[in-house]
Structure formats: C-alpha cells, structure tokens
Design a protein around this nucleic acid. Structure first.
Length: 491
RNA sequence: CGGGGUGUAGCGCAGUCCGGUAGCGCACCUGGUUUGGGACCAGGGGGUCCCAGGUUCGAAUCCUGGUACCCCGACCA
C-alpha cells in the first residue's frame, strides 16, 4: 500500500499532523493558530457533542448562550482569574472600518474607538456571574445548572491542530449552588460524566484526580481532571471540573437569602471539555495506516464496497447490498454504500482505513455466488468471509467487540506505561527511556513540584482520587508523604 | 518572543550555488483497456516562481527590505 503517513516511530508528532490532514479531519486556515474543522472531523465532534449533551441533560442541566464579548472591566474582578488569562486575550477596540485614504483597501476607523474594550472570551465565568447576579435572590432560585456550547479564544503562542488552537470549540458548564457541599458534589458528578464519556464512548481509559495548586484553574479552589495517556507516552488533560468556592460570587456580588433569611454568597462550579478531545481520540487508538475510531463515535460505522466489472454486476450487488443496508440501519448502525464508479476498490479500501471506519464489507461476484461477504475490521486489520444470512447481528457484535478491544488495548498500554518509582534518579532515567505515567511520593509543596518540572519537564498530572493511603517519602526531599501522585510529561 | 527551516501548477517537490523562453511525480480533463489492497497506456489543460524595490541586454536564480507558514524552545485546555 502506498505510504501516506509518516510512521509513529519515525516522528510521532509528524504522524499526528499528517493524520489529521490526510484523514480529512481539519486543516490549517488563513488565520494563524485557527483551524478549519472539515466535515468528517466535524461529524465526529457532533457525535461527541450529542452524547455529552444527553449526559448533561440526564444530570439535570440545561443549555443557554452568553456573549462572545466580555467587557474588559469584568476581567479585573477576580484577581487569580485575570492573572491566569491576561496574557492570552484577544481584545476588540473598534467597531467600524472605513476606506483607506490612499484607496487601497480598508482601515480601522480611528473615530470608532470603543469606550470600553471588549475581550473575546477565553472562558465565560465573568460574563456569566455578572448575569447570575440578576438571576439569584433566594435559595429558591438555586441551583442553577447551565451549560453552553461555544467557541473561545486563547491567544496561544504555539498551536497544534485540535490539541491547542487559538480558537476552539467547547462546552462550559456553570453552576450556582446554595451550599459548599452541593457545589463540590456537582464538581465530582461532572468529572464522573467526563470519565464515563472518555472510557465508554471514546474507549480511552483515564485517571481521575485532583490538580495541585500549581496546575489548578485560575480562580478555582479545587480542579478535578481526567488524564489520558497518549501512545507516545505523554499525558493529555482531557477534561476538567472546577470547584470555584465563593470566589466569583464575591467578585460579582452574587448573594442569596438562605432559609433562615440570611444573605450568603453563592457557591460555584465550572467544567468543560473541548475539541482537544478530538486530539485525544486520534492519539489513543490510531496506527500507521491511519485513524482508528471507536464504533460509538464513528460517523460511518460500516462501509460497503462493491467489486464488479460490468454495470449488470454492480446492479446485482447493489440489490443485495440495499437489503443488507436496510437491515443494518434498522439495528441503528450507520452504513455507507460506496458505489462511486470513479474510484477503484483498492483505493476505497485504503481511504476508509485512513479514515478509521470500524468495519468494511466488500462484496463481489464470488460473494454473490456463495451468499457471503468479506468483513474487515479496522482495529486489527483482520479479514474474514462471512455468511450473508444473519450478518447484521454479527456486525452488531463485531462493533461491540471493536469498541471493547480498542479500550482494552489502550488500557493494557497504559498499564505497561505506568511505573511505580521511589527514587528520583530512577524517575529521571525511566522518564526518558520509557515515558508514560509515574506514581511517586511527593512532599506536597509547590517548590518540589517546580523543581521536578524544571529539571525533567514532567508535571504532576493529578493526585488520583482513588490513590490508596500509603506511607512513603518524597522522592526528591525525603519528607513524608501519605499517597502517591501521578507524574508525566504532558501536552 | 528567541533559534532553525520553507514559500515555484490543486498537493508534494526539483531547478537557485554557476542568471539565458519554468520542470518532475501525484491529482485533473479526453479516449481506451481495467476493477477482490491506492490500475495501465496514449493524448491534453493548468504557473503574477510569496510581495516590493534594486543590479542586469536578460532574474525563480544575484542584492536589499518586507511578509506568510512550518518545526524546535519559553507560556497554556
């Protein structure tokens, strides 16, 4: 087969870049750092959105929409928040253009300067809490469980398709609660939603945990995260859920009368996942032949390729395929029959492999005669001739099998790449030689965390929520530690 | 913002050192043969050589300035 991708071994990040473009997921655009998400890539994102949105509704949330622009003054109200985002904000200063005096193109009209500049939202806490102030008077108005699907802009210095772009799509949940306990519970609930989505839909195992103070969201008291391990041994933060305490309520003066009639500040959470999940999905399962998609998120689950010489042959095949397609569709399977005469079977095989379609069926004269079909699965690249009779149920089972197989494969990989280490020198050595996740004792200080980051580029990805109590000594300082934390080099 | 690299047909590149009518592969169009892993043959179309200025009889090529993108670092979901 013609090689269209750089191999992972040769150059992992080139492989990723090639794959995103060759599989028609996205492209670089005319705008620096901003991508065009192409129809096939967007179809995957839409599937992700649909599933997540259902999960949000299931947990009591509703969707709303807040403005793209945020008055600059809103930003200065929460100190830590400003600090976190100030360096990457796009700012709108004018509202009109005019013809250039020299007749060449247009210029910004200097007379149309805004009284107060607008910030293009890097996240919406400020505009939303400014709004919530008007929505909340009493405990009866709580909780507010709102989500929005939106684009945000963070002016990144260096970007990569899906993993880090200047503009990206995401959802951001913003909730308001009357008690601290309820807000914390919400933060945890949404982390579980994300973990469930990652594992059962994306087939991507994740470690759930708490971020350290250094890695916390700007303005949060606690950040929960799901961390996934990519095939190159680097970690990818795939979703976060923040307990914001009363920070934003205080900054925007959002109070409510509790049942005793006393005023108190509202408790807040926010949580989000972004198009970065596309990058996570790509890097979790794909191989040197192209994308490997979990059946549950694949826009096309089954592709059918006819093999024929003459028109009459195609007509006969189509007749059988149409019946088969109908049966598959009735079971909820998405099917594409590619009877495009302008491409040859070999070309189609390679193309759908590159695009990660989980199952490919090929039907030619031989099959027509024998009542069979050739079934090829993308995850293992195995081919098998199966009886047409009752095929739909076999396909259904096969899709399930692929879904669980790629999960198991990713899980086995993660286990193999998760190392328990006690000695700092060994940590440094294995970090280079093996990569992956490391479970180590840490003394709990930012200084030690910083030191490790500076010396090794590894960071604490999280303090796993299920980390068992274990007395030990920090691998750097030797100070006592009561549980292991997760280290890795990260995206 | 530092360091490196690249801008030549839709895509990938050669040509630049050493100036002389712009080329290759893929893709595209036409015809035919093909079709169970990216078919083959024949014919054909397509380029302000990133932009601006300079040197020269003559610039993709030399000089000056600009610009865009990619890669590697520092910052981040």
């Amino acid at each position: 087969m013609a090689k269209v991708l750089t191999s992972r071994e040769e150059n992992y990040s080139q492989w990723y870049n090639d794959l995103v473009i060759k599989a028609d997921l996205a492209d670089n655009s005319a705008v620096r750092g901003c991508m065009v998400i192409k129809p096939y890539g967007y179809a995957i994102w839409e599937k992700m959105q649909r599933v997540l949105d259902d999960m949000f509704k299931e947990t009591g949330h509703v969707n709303a929409y807040f403005p793209l622009f945020i008055p600059k003054s809103f930003f200065s109200k929460e100190a830590a928040h400003v600090e976190g985002f100030a360096k990457e904000c796009a700012v709108v200063t004018h509202y009109r253009l005019k013809n250039s005096p020299d007749g060449k193109g247009v210029i910004v009209d200097p007379d149309a300067k805004l009284e107060e500049e607008y910030i293009v939202r890097p996240t919406s806490e400020t505009i939303i809490w400014n709004t919530y102030k008007n929505w909340i008077q009493s405990y009866r108005d709580l909780p507010i469980l709102v989500n929005q699907w939106a684009n945000v802009v963070r002016w990144e210095m260096r970007t990569r398709l899906f993993l880090r772009t200047a503009e990206f799509l995401w959802q951001e949940g913003h909730t308001a609660h009357s008690t601290k306990e309820e807000a914390i519970k919400e933060t945890e609930t949404m982390l579980k939603v994300y973990a469930n989505f990652a594992e059962n839909w994306m087939a991507m195992p994740v470690v759930q945990g708490y971020k350290t103070a250094n890695e916390r969201f700007a303005g949060a008291l606690e950040t929960l995260t799901i961390e996934a391990l990519m095939q190159d041994g680097k970690a990818l933060q795939s979703g976060t859920s923040h307990f914001l305490g009363q920070n934003f309520a205080k900054a925007f003066d959002v109070t409510f009368a509790n049942q005793e009639g006393k005023l108190d500040y509202v408790w807040a959470t926010s949580w989000g996942v972004s198009t970065r999940l596309m990058g996570a999905l790509i890097m979790s399962h794909s191989d040197d032949n192209g994308l490997v998609l979990p059946p549950k998120l694949a826009p096309i689950q089954v592709v059918i390729v006819p093999i024929y010489k003459k028109e009459e042959e195609l007509a006969k095949i189509s007749e059988v395929v149409d019946k088969l397609s109908a049966k598959l569709k009735s079971l909820g399977i998405s099917v594409k029959y590619d009877n495009d005469d302008k491409r040859k079977p070999g070309w189609k095989f390679a193309e759908y492999e590159l695009k990660g379609v989980p199952v490919r069926l090929a039907m030619g004269p031989r099959d027509l005669e024998n009542g069979t079909v050739e079934v090829a699965r993308r995850d293992t690249l195995q081919k098998e001739v199966m009886q047409l009779e009752g095929l739909e149920n076999n396909i259904l089972a096969l899709l399930d099998d692929i879904q669980s197989n790629i999960y198991k494969k990713a899980q086995a990989f993660r286990e193999e790449k998760t190392t328990v280490v006690n000695d700092y020198e060994e940590f440094k050595r294995l970090l280079d030689e093996k990569g992956g996740f490391f479970l180590c004792h840490w003394d709990g200080t930012s200084e030690t965390e910083e030191l490790i980051k500076t010396e090794t580029k590894a960071t604490i990805r999280c303090i796993p929520i299920d980390a068992p109590e274990e007395q030990g000594n920090c691998m750097v300082t030797g100070k006592p530690s009561s549980r292991r934390v997760l280290f890795a080099r990260a995206y």
